[in-house]
Nucleic acid binder design. Structure first.
Lengths: 225, 225
DNA sequence: AATCCATAAAATGTATACAAATTTCAGATT
DNA sequence: AATCTGAAATTTGTATACATTTTATGGATT
């Protein structure tokens, strides 16, 4: 006989949470928009009970804000929050890099090398979505190589909250070239297992990214105000 | 006329969440223990709906683990998780210190000085709970002085998850004295606004704390296995 | 004794009814 | 026109009934 298989049956609450999360992250529901229960129960085809449970879960992820007796709204990520989040993420990237330099396995390094080439290919083709994808995968791999699940969870959580700002930022060619150059250095330092230098570079890499995004936000922020 | 006062009316879900959170953090419900809905509805005097919403919220905080179709259990924090959490917290403390050195206001520094004396008093009296309290307040003040709400939120969140391990750790007199000495240095570096040195010291301070707690855990870990 | 198996009991998941609060809006008042 | 007022409509909060799944139980079989 087989051992009892603990199938993670997807409850309606899980389905609703995943659907809503995607809708919010991808910006299909605007920041600040009200999440009307009746409307969403019809859209998602679930009753209010699992939907409200989804609200609580997403509130915990920082994607939704709950106003007692007054419903739920999509969390608004203002410039100050983006700035603070990147300040923290820059440090976490640095930590991940320092740990990864000490703990990364050869296969992981090989995979990052491959992703680096994917990224260079996307850059050469001016394929921005492809670049974002390869870029994110590289950062995720470095993070995974740090072998600290709590760090990874925290990193992903923060990343998710500001995911939307990435696509809204207009990456200049100069900044794009600069980012590519930084990545080349990152890989070199990772291969050299130079933890401290890698930390410094990754932290700066993210602070540069923050500057780019904040500059883009300033333009749209004025329009919103 | 007055502006509309947005009273945060406490819903039963909020009350249930707060009660359960305290019970878990203070260890009144053991790690790994099953959270039976029928039992808890009677204890907390709420129906299943707000109770289940509390489960989702606490799962988001990492205090509860949800097993689809099989209920909720109090999250088990094993030695590996404690180790990883402190590795991350050590870095966050360091970041907080570095930022605080640049951003702290005179009044905040004065308050930390006062708390430092409270801590010294508790140490002189061998008042461990008083020491823990003053110690935690100092770290929270440094964190607040960093002026990064996202960092603070992340820090509190991680702290909450391992809160229980603090009291379980048996602090030796030598380690206690060492911690006091470290705090004296921390205050001096904060007053000197020496960000990099403060970062290094705070990170090391937390790694030392981790070593103490992991040593304590090893003893009880064997007994549990 | 150990293992199955079927059934009962209990627990979780979901929908819905009702309660309480908020929001809307037509009509009155200034 | 702007503001106020209060009932109606809407919306959120909570309890509970029902559905589905898991767990416990007690005998039958080996």
């Amino acid at each position: 006989m087989n051992a009892p298989i603990p199938i993670d049956r997807a409850t309606l609450a899980h389905v609703a949470t995943a659907s809503l999360r995607d809708m919010i992250i991808e910006g299909r529901i605007a920041p600040g928009a009200r999440l009307n229960e009746r409307v969403l129960t019809e859209e998602l085809q679930v009753s209010r009970t699992p939907l409200r449970e989804a609200f609580k879960t997403l509130a915990g992820e920082g994607l939704v804000e709950l106003l007692p007796q007054r419903g739920a709204v999509v969390a608004v990520v203002d410039a100050a929050t983006v700035s603070a989040t990147y300040e923290l993420m820059a440090d976490l990237e640095g930590l991940a890099g320092e740990l990864a330099a000490a703990r990364i396995q050869p296969e992981e390094l090989a995979e990052i090398r491959a992703l680096q080439f994917d990224m260079l290919a996307s850059h050469a083709r001016r394929d921005l979505p492809g670049y974002f994808r390869a870029n994110m995968q590289i950062h995720n791999k470095i993070n995974a190589a740090a072998r600290n699940p709590v760090l990874t969870e925290t990193y992903l959580r923060l990343n998710q909250r500001i995911y939307g700002t990435r696509y809204r930022s207009n990456l200049s060619n100069e900044r794009w070239d600069q980012a590519i150059a930084e990545h080349t250095k990152i890989l070199r330092l990772l291969e050299a297992r130079d933890g401290p230098a890698l930390r410094a570079l990754l932290t700066q890499h993210l602070l540069n990214k923050r500057a780019t995004i904040l500059a883009s936000l300033e333009g749209s922020q004025v329009a919103a105000a």
